[in-house]
Design a protein around this nucleic acid. Sequence first.
DNA 1: CGGGTGTTTGACGTCTGTCAAAAAGCGTGG
DNA 2: CCACGCTTTTTGACAGACGTCAAACACCCG
Lengths: 212, 212
Amino acid sequence: MNAIGINAGDKQAHATALPLASLVRRSAVTTYTAGTEIYVPGALADNFYEVEYGAVRLHRLLTDGRRQVVAFYLAGETFGFEADRRHTLFAEAIVATGVRTISPGTGEMSAHHVLKLALQAVQRAQEHLTVVGRQTAVERIAGFLVDMAERQGNLEHFDLPMSRLDIADYLGITIETVSRVFAKLRNSRLITLKTVRSVKINNMEALASLCA
Amino acid sequence: MNAIGINAGDKQAHATALPLASLVRRSAVTTYTAGTEIYVPGALADNFYEVEYGAVRLHRLLTDGRRQVVAFYLAGETFGFEADRRHTLFAEAIVATGVRTISPGTGEMSAHHVLKLALQAVQRAQEHLTVVGRQTAVERIAGFLVDMAERQGNLEHFDLPMSRLDIADYLGITIETVSRVFAKLRNSRLITLKTVRSVKINNMEALASLCA
DNA sequence: CGGGTGTTTGACGTCTGTCAAAAAGCGTGG
DNA sequence: CCACGCTTTTTGACAGACGTCAAACACCCG
């Protein structure tokens, strides 16, 4: 089943997506199955990538084996920027995912748009930081859900492509706490879980108010 | 060099400071006393800023009055990038600070360097995220101290320009916990505090190993 | 219908937030 | 130079939230 597949070909990208089509050289879409690597730390950072469908996770492995998920990218969003010539993070498809590889041109036009995407990445990271900096798990999960809803077109019903473990590593908490907070939000009728990964937000205002 | 092709001709891949001198129009240095605002949310983001001396804090106010410190900028570092036309954060001088206002030109050269600085900001934010995502307060403080030491030239002895409250809001913990962790690190001889803000790292390796 | 993975729930200990008070800095003024 | 008052920092006591360990449960795939 995989509710995730429903995003394939979905054009309603929006918010953060930029129309890159006419600005850069575009190659064909590469498909990745769930859990496969798109790039690894140390790999040459010579392209960037636009998610056609599915979802991608950027993460870093800590020395003790823990993982910090740095970002998620959904359909229409672009990733792969690096300050250096080599990647410092892992990029992995979370579910079956189509990714368009983009070779940045050298022209001025392209640089401007890369800059704009980079600035969006800064803003995204700062917002992530604000969510993770919060003190309680409820605030973090609520912030995460609100963000996911916004990025999927402000739908009240959407599917989470990522596992509880991904969410935990993204928010800096454990999967047990993630699970308990979901249960708490469900019990208080703020959300409904049709399946584990299918979220319906019943009261967006109340949920948003939990984000402090 | 780098992925996006913006590094042409730039040799020093080092983290923070970039030689902006010959690339953009530079204006005089503005001085700010401790605690004064450089810009506020909503202000037009038409410049960026290089710290000449002192230190700057970027932060955001949450609705419940808490503060998330998004970044610190030390001498030689540049800040002020925004994805939109207007700022979304507060920028404040932490101590007596000199700031050089930089008006980005419209030429290609300038855009390239703005991009590089933006990409550094992304990397910086991702590292901050990794520190804040850690689970224990000791790990966060250790990571913070190691970062500060590196940014001040890998000196084992340096001064913290920011207060305990700034550190707490930067790391997503309380000032009491910051204080307790400093005491713990001092008692275990990993650091020495000549004054409250003067830190000497006695065992950099051990401290770094606490960062997981 | 099994087996494996992912998720939920429970029990318990610890870390950290909260509240409170004491101590230490620091600038001002006598 | 010392005294004073304010702010910042430290320390203590306590409670609550979350991590850890463990087991049960749900779900997916063959």
